[in-house]
Amino acid sequence: MGDPGSDPARVVEEASIVRQPLLALLAKEPAHGYELKLALEQTFGAAYPSPNIGQIYVTLKRLEADGLVRSQDVEQTTRPNKRVYELTPAGREVVAAWVDEPSDGPRVRDEFFAKLILAPRAGLADQMELINKQRHHYYRLMRGLNDLQDSASRQDSAARLLVEGTRLHLQADLDWLERCQEELV
């Protein structure tokens, strides 16, 4: 995986992932960009796709343009001014609506499934090979999660639960690959 900053599509995607959590952090209290970055990292640990400071500022600018946050420069004597962000009433409504609505369930559109069905029809790949390749990818991800879990401290329950959830999803994906194998191969 390269630097997310080098891929414009990924920057946009990551910016939208970070949008709601930033609003939720600002619902607690006003903060500047770097504080928000630290708060995300400390709460979710290494398991979370940690946004870089650039992504946070880009997202904050967009939120401001959308009228969900406003900012003002706060003078600092020894350092350059910092820009402190706070929620607007419209932003508060958006956070409340976000908290209130159920979050996305499992996806119905699955990129791998499209490959698995379409590629063999075009003679581009063998289904068993595709399934095995995808399996290997999941095993590697699983091992990465194990390492993350080992490095997370035991008290760090938010990060631990996040890893646990990802592991359960991965296991479900692997079980589903098995079903594909049984039906298709």
Binding site: N132, R135, Y139, M142, N146, R167, L170, Q171, Q181
Partner: peptide, 15 residues
């Protein structure tokens, strides 16, 4: 359990 299997050096799948 893939969490268990991913501790191994190698994974064999039987079918």
């Amino acid at each position: 359990d893939a969490r268990v299997a991913s501790n191994a050096d190698r994974v064999i799948n039987l079918y």
